Computed example of a mutant assay.
Amino acid sequence: MDARTTEHEASIAKVRNSFADAIGHARYSSEPTVLTSRGKRVAAIVPMEFYERALEALGIEVTPSQESTAADS
């Protein structure tokens, strides 16, 4: 199976000013945004479904940190 998707690439500085757009690409268009710093690809904002499937495929079980659970309360 040959799965393809559109990938956006933006500097961290640009995404900082339009974070909602990057989240929207992932959430509604299922398109990742690759973050760059000084031209180097350093991180990605991906759709939650992709993240969950990747963890499952890699056999990784995630435990939320105390920091993240306290912030959501």
Rank of each mutant, 00 (worst) to 15 (best):
D21Q: 13
T36Y: 12
T5I: 14
V42I: 15
A20P: 05
A20M: 12
T36M: 00
V15K: 01
A71E: 01
A71I: 11
R27L: 13
A71G: 01
T33L: 01
A70C: 10
V46L: 06
S30H: 11
A70M: 02
L35Y: 11
G24R: 08
E52G: 01
T69K: 07
G59H: 10
A26Y: 04
T33D: 04
H8S: 08
A22P: 00
R41Q: 06
V46T: 03
E61A: 10
R4L: 13
P47C: 07
R16K: 13
M1P: 06
S65H: 04
S18P: 12
V62R: 03
P32V: 05
P64C: 02
F50N: 04
E7A: 14
L55C: 08
P64Y: 05
I12W: 01
F19S: 09
Q66I: 12
E52T: 00
A44G: 06
M48K: 05
S37L: 15
A43Q: 07
Q66E: 06
A13K: 06
F50T: 01
D21F: 11
K40E: 15
D72I: 09
A71V: 00
R38D: 14
K40N: 03
I60V: 15
R41A: 13
S18N: 15
S29T: 12
K14E: 07
E52R: 08
S29R: 12
H25Y: 14
E56F: 07
I45C: 06
S65W: 10
Y51L: 15
K14W: 14
Q66P: 11
F19N: 06
R38M: 02
K14Q: 12
S73D: 02
S37H: 14
E67A: 02
H25V: 02
P32H: 08
I23G: 02
D2R: 03
